[in-house]
Computed example of a mutant assay.
Amino acid sequence: MTRLESQPHTYPSDIAFTPTVKALQSRNGSRDAYARMEEEHGWQTRLTPDVARFIEQQTSVFFATASAQGQPYIQHRGGPAGFLHMLDDHTIAFADFAGNRQYLTAGNLADNPKAHLFLVDYAHRRRIKIWGEARVIDDDPALLAKLMPQGYKARGERVVVMSVHAWDVNCPKHIPQRFEAADVAAALEERDERIKELEAQVAELKRLSGASGA
């Protein structure tokens, strides 16, 4: 198996802004703005409490890996809110549930540890991109049990642990606004209860008006 070595970066964003990317930015007129971003604040490497809360609220994410030959692969990962765990401010972990037994993600990580986590909150039109390296842990049943969501009907097979190297928040442009079915159902239930309350108030007012006019 071939393990790919990480290259040192001057700025955290260099993990994505390669020399070729920066050349294209210069050619298209955006390089100066991104250079100022790098020098003034840049992307962060530590997961802040706000980002940690965002991560742990997600129920559907996309996890990207690549083979030793560079062939990318994106796999959906889902579960109840909290299935993504923050082990510390640089580490994310989750239980890998039994699936179609293709083992593409596990195989890719065996050859190439580079990984990317893409999270989208459609309701609030927010997305966070996380770069890092990940590894598969097959022989830690205690950690697997700790990461398994309570009461969730799935079988955990292994653990995936991701070390965060950089993260960035995208603008909401072009993100369609969508809502979770459970949130819509709760809002409709609240609306229906309020309608019942108003109907009862109207009925009571009509009763009182009829009584006073008798």
Rank of each mutant, 00 (worst) to 15 (best):
E40H: 08
L4G: 06
A35R: 13
R36H: 06
A203K: 13
N112Y: 00
T105V: 10
S26G: 05
R125F: 08
D50L: 08
H76S: 10
F62M: 14
A95L: 04
I55R: 00
L205W: 05
V136E: 15
V169C: 03
A98V: 15
E157P: 12
D111S: 13
I15H: 13
I15V: 13
G29S: 01
P49C: 06
L24K: 14
A115W: 00
V21D: 04
R127W: 09
M1G: 15
S67Q: 11
K153Y: 15
E204D: 08
R31C: 02
I130N: 00
F62N: 06
D140R: 09
D192H: 08
D168A: 11
P80D: 01
R27T: 07
P80R: 02
T48R: 01
F83I: 08
K146D: 07
A187R: 05
V202A: 10
T2M: 14
T105H: 09
R36M: 05
L144K: 06
Y103D: 08
V120Q: 00
Q150T: 04
T20W: 15
L188P: 13
W43H: 01
S212Q: 15
A185H: 08
Q177G: 01
G70L: 09
F118H: 06
D139F: 04
H174L: 13
H85L: 06
H9D: 11
L87A: 02
F17K: 13
K129M: 11
A134R: 07
W131R: 08
D121W: 14
V120L: 00
H174I: 13
F179T: 09
T48E: 00
V120R: 05
M148K: 04
D138H: 09
V21N: 05
E199Y: 07
W131G: 04
R31G: 02
R101S: 15
E197F: 11
W167Q: 01
A154L: 03
P176W: 09
E39S: 10
F179H: 14
L84C: 04
P113Q: 07
I130Y: 03
A181Y: 04
E133R: 12
E39V: 07
P80E: 02
T20N: 07
V120C: 02
A134M: 03
L4P: 03
D192Q: 08
Q7R: 15
G151D: 07
R191M: 14
M148A: 10
Q201N: 13
Q102D: 06
A181C: 07
V51D: 03
W167I: 01
E197L: 10
P72V: 06
A182S: 07
G107P: 00
